[in-house]
Design a protein around this nucleic acid. Structure first.
Length: 460
DNA sequence: ATCGGCTCGCGCAA
DNA sequence: TGCGCGAAGCCGAT
């Protein structure tokens, strides 16, 4: 059967400039920080082969990426180092330069025939692409490689809930959940000369960078890089996937994939993960369906949210019924009110919540089920819902390796009613869905979770 | 252990 | 226009 590795709907020309007059094809890598299952890279190779040129890859490294700190930079650089080495084995040169991504793309792309870029949906990522498209002397083409079904194919508006986007995604899955055949690189780019930062020694590089060092790096469990991601996913499939349906909401277990940090930095492809799941024996069909629902429907609902909701990082993004009901309960007395510092230091009266906060601080990760509880309680323990929302988002982005992800903005907003519905009215929350410690006790071994976090923190 | 009520609004059927 | 039903629930009645 004939199929295209890079479907036409993944490709979007961003300007009217001509292509073909330069010496190489530039792949400006920013979101999809990997050498495998990367549609943007693949398309760049195809274009380069057509022109008889090589592909040069460029990445712009900033000291002041919004809300990034030592923890995030360490993980990202571990991944970039491996990606650079993997590309070199394919005879593709990757240069990493200090500077704003758009500036680096324009500088390294000065002699390019065409600039290919990948696709993040946060405000600043869109602005970078806009700037490159406007100022570049050659054609700029964007290739979607971070979702299974391109956003515009699914919907042209902010979807109301998972149930409205689900059929729109499923309708197209057969066209996009297809195997990926990498093209052969015909012309090497290794001989091209371009400045590149030395990233072989990450510790040395990190010491030189003027970055926020307020958050420590994480233990080796979450080590950055595509090969580490694939290795962890393989372990998940072989040892834990058979328990995934039963245990995915059981935070005392580790029967989850732990892929979110790798997906956030584009170190692993969602298409690769989905294809791996497809290959699993159909006796585990329930687990397969459940995992693909998370990986595709809910993840791409988050992409849809940040792409189409202009205020995705503000309280204003909430639906009217949610803001209304929270406003009606603004004056309700709060039994507990904690400062941001008390929250960050895990100094509340609730040992389950404190355990979740400690998991986040020490590992850069939190079990999915606890993320919801964690967020709901900050709403309950803050002076106002607006203040709670801002605090939650700030702590989320500070400590999580996958902070500042579309899933972060969607997850935090979900706590306040987005993509959800009204429930029984109660103090503070109004009609926003409530979660209680008693629910954790009823549904899972929450004491076991606290013990698990104690062990993790001891080891860290 | 299990069930129904609580509550909003989208999207589809009619 | 009516109706079913939903991103992770709670609570009280049985």
């Amino acid at each position: 059967m004939d199929f295209q590795t890079v479907q036409k709907s993944r490709i979007q020309v961003l300007n009217d400039a001509e292509s073909g007059k330069g010496r190489y094809v530039l792949y400006w890598m920013q979101q999809s920080q990997r050498a495998d299952y990367n549609h943007a890279l693949e398309y760049a190779i195809q274009q380069a082969n057509r022109l008889g040129q090589g592909v040069l890859v460029a990445f712009g490294l900033m000291d002041d990426y919004p809300e990034a700190n030592l923890r995030h930079y360490t993980f990202m650089l571990e991944g970039l180092k491996e990606t650079r080495e993997t590309l070199a084995r394919r005879r593709i040169k990757m240069v990493i330069q200090k500077g704003a991504p758009a500036e680096v793309a324009l500088k390294v792309g000065r002699n390019a025939s065409v600039i290919i870029c990948d696709c993040g949906y946060l405000r600043h990522q869109k602005a970078w692409r806009e700037e490159v498209a406007t100022r570049a002397g050659c054609r700029v083409v964007q290739v979607e490689s971070d979702v299974i079904v391109p956003l515009r194919v699914v919907s042209d508006k902010a979807e109301y809930a998972a149930r409205t986007i689900r059929p729109k995604i499923h309708k197209h899955l057969a066209d996009y959940l297809v195997d990926f055949k990498p093209a052969t690189v015909k012309e090497s780019s290794l001989h091209l000369t371009a400045n590149c930062m030395d990233i072989d020694n990450i510790d040395t590089l990190l010491k030189k960078m003027k970055i926020d060092r307020s958050v420590m790096r994480v233990s080796n469990f979450f080590k950055g890089g595509s090969s580490r991601a694939r290795q962890m996913f393989k372990t998940f499939l072989h040892r834990r996937f058979e328990r995934y349906v039963d245990n995915r909401n059981q935070p005392q277990t580790d029967d989850i994939s732990h892929m979110s940090p790798y997906l956030h930095f584009g170190q692993i492809s969602p298409l690769y993960l989905a294809l791996q799941i497809n290959d699993v024996d159909s006796r585990l069909q329930a687990a397969k369906d459940s995992f693909l629902e998370e990986l595709i429907v809910r993840r791409e609902l988050a992409m849809n949210f940040v792409n189409y909701a202009p205020h995705y990082d503000s309280y204003k993004c909430l639906p009217n019924w949610a803001r209304l009901t929270l406003a009606e309960h603004r004056q309700d007395p709060r039994e507990y009110v904690y400062t941001r510092r008390q929250l960050e230091n895990a100094q509340t009266h609730d040992e389950y919540w404190n355990a979740a906060m400690r998991e986040m601080r020490h590992t850069g990760f939190m079990h999915n089920y606890m993320r919801m509880y964690w967020g709901k309680k900050i709403l309950e323990w803050s002076k106002t819902p607006e203040h709670a929302y801002r605090t939650t988002l700030a702590i989320n982005n500070k400590y999580f390796l996958d902070g500042r992800d579309p899933n972060s903005y969607t997850g935090v907003a979900w706590v306040y009613g987005i993509h959800d519905r009204a429930w029984f009215e109660r103090p503070i929350f109004g009609k926003i869905r409530y979660m209680a410690a008693s629910g954790l006790e009823r549904k899972c071994d929450i004491k076991g979770y606290v013990r698990k976090v104690d062990d993790l923190v001891d080891k860290a």
